[in-house]
């Protein structure tokens, strides 16, 4: 579990409903932490490379996002992010050992085992298993990613999340349920 200031860093993305969420900057800001996590995991924890990708993403978004329908900007950003990562590693003959590599078979198996058995500790101590989980978590849409991380990695209660989101605890339960299903789907759909 990280020791960084995660608890207070649940981004104001979760409060963005009250804002005008259509502008590129708003969408980018709302998704920035999720996008950064997406990059830094795929950079093998190289924060500088992740920062470079974030800069390139913002530059591309500034130049091209005007042609994207307002409701699809977030999806478009994630698509651009994916391409940036793919292009970067394609140009290099090999990836550093610490960069996670998607293993679709392993990830799909994990997805099934998550709902059929208590995962053994020894399994979670394997790097390749942790890699699949990190890849899948960071594939999630930003709002679901924040919920999963807040609740399961930082032990934020339903009540805490409800207060932060400005919704009922029951609503949080519902959102978490959907986020869990999305995570399983992300594991199943993980591409090499």
């Amino acid at each position: 579990m990280t020791t960084s200031c995660i608890r207070s860093s649940l981004p104001r993305v979760l409060e963005a409903d009250a804002e005008d969420d259509s502008s590129l900057e708003t969408v980018f800001d709302r998704n920035r932490r999720g996008l950064y996590r997406y990059f830094v995991v795929r950079a093998g924890n190289d924060s500088h490379l992740a920062d470079d990708w974030m800069q390139q993403l913002w530059l591309k978004a500034s130049q091209h996002a005007s042609g994207v329908p307002p409701g699809e900007v977030e999806f478009w950003l994630h698509g651009v992010a994916k391409n940036l990562v793919r292009e970067h590693w394609r140009k290099r003959s090999r990836r550093p050992a610490q960069v996670p590599i998607a293993d679709p078979a392993l990830a799909a198996d994990l997805s099934d085992r998550l709902v059929t058995e208590e995962l053994p500790t020894a399994l979670l101590e394997k790097k390749e298993v942790r890699d699949q989980l990190l890849l899948a978590v960071t594939e999630l849409p930003s709002d679901e990613q924040e919920l999963i991380i807040g609740h399961y990695f930082h032990n934020q209660s339903h009540r805490f999340l409800a207060e932060r989101l400005g919704v009922s605890e029951r609503a949080v339960e519902g959102r978490l349920y959907r986020a869990r299903q999305t995570l399983r789907t992300a594991l199943k759909d993980l591409e090499a």
Partner: peptide
């Protein structure tokens, strides 16, 4: 039951898997 198992497993994952440092 499956969802409850998933929930428990995710808590265990949260303990064992380290997220990257926040920016």
């Amino acid at each position: 039951n499956r969802d409850q198992l998933l929930d428990r497993n995710l808590f265990e994952i949260g303990k064992k898997v380290t997220l990257p440092k926040e920016p």
